[in-house]
Amino acid sequence: MEEENTHFSIKDWSLSDRPREKLLHKGSSSLSEAELIAILIGSGTRKMSAVELSRIIIKDAQNSLVVLGKKSLKDLMTYKGIGEAKAITIAAAMELGKRRAMEMPIELPKIKSSEDAFKIMQPVIGELPHEEFWVMLLDNSHKVLEKRNISIGGITGTLVDARVVFKKAIEAGAVAMVLAHNHPSGNLKPSTQDKALTLKLMEAGKLLDIKVLDHLIITQQGFYSFADQGLL
């Protein structure tokens, strides 16, 4: 869909509807998601400002940036006033946000609970349409040395080679690890294969003095912890 030739530019908006000025004077945290998106698209249509258009877009995405980030360029371009260039800008911003969440902080995070592990791994695998198996490698203070992808599978499963898992752990000098994989279906219940793999890796870890502290099953909305459930 082509963008209209005439739009309300920012200079035409009322002072209360100018997100750039609001960001300048009050900081980015003072803006709503719709106002931030409005800055990205720059202009609306003859009938509505960029902020009004952005409010419709975010509302249609269930007021969720996660849902908005999953929309295709074609989906975004169904809105009058959103052409290819603006759709690409929104998609690029969503991807930058996702990548920022995935980056490890300079200060090594310390795993004190299953919730800590979930917060690190959910942005990495929680929204994937296929299964992936990852391992977080920890030092003796349970600080994360590395997080490594071990295998990529299909919608219903992935194969994991224990030798690869412990090879990565030894290379990193890890003394403990947290296992994690996602369930694209949203089902948090561990399968028989999940339980068998966990036991296999625990036993292998005992021989190498590398402790398996937990195994998380992660979905977009939540997680299941083997340790919290007393299965380790």
Rank of each mutant, 00 (worst) to 15 (best):
E2Y: 05
H7E: 13
H7R: 15
F8D: 03
D12A: 10
D17L: 03
P19W: 01
R20N: 02
K22H: 04
A34C: 06
E35C: 04
I37Y: 01
A38F: 01
I41L: 05
R46Y: 00
M48T: 06
S49L: 01
L53M: 13
I57E: 03
N63I: 01
G69P: 08
G69C: 08
S72V: 09
D75C: 02
D75Y: 03
M77R: 13
T78S: 15
T78W: 00
K80H: 12
K80E: 13
G81A: 06
E84P: 05
E84F: 10
A85W: 00
K86Y: 07
A87C: 07
A87E: 09
T89I: 14
A91G: 07
R99M: 10
R99D: 03
M102Q: 15
P105L: 00
P105M: 02
P105H: 02
P105C: 00
I111E: 07
S114F: 02
P123W: 05
P123Y: 06
V124W: 07
E127M: 11
H130S: 08
V135S: 04
L137H: 04
K143L: 11
L145D: 08
K147S: 09
K147N: 11
G154S: 14
V165M: 10
F166I: 11
F166D: 10
I170N: 08
I170R: 14
E171S: 09
G173P: 05
V175K: 11
A176R: 04
V178M: 03
V178I: 08
G186L: 04
G186S: 02
T192M: 07
T198Q: 12
L201N: 04
A204F: 14
A204E: 15
G205M: 08
L208F: 09
T219E: 06
Q220E: 15
G222R: 12
G222W: 03
F223T: 05
L232K: 11
L232A: 12
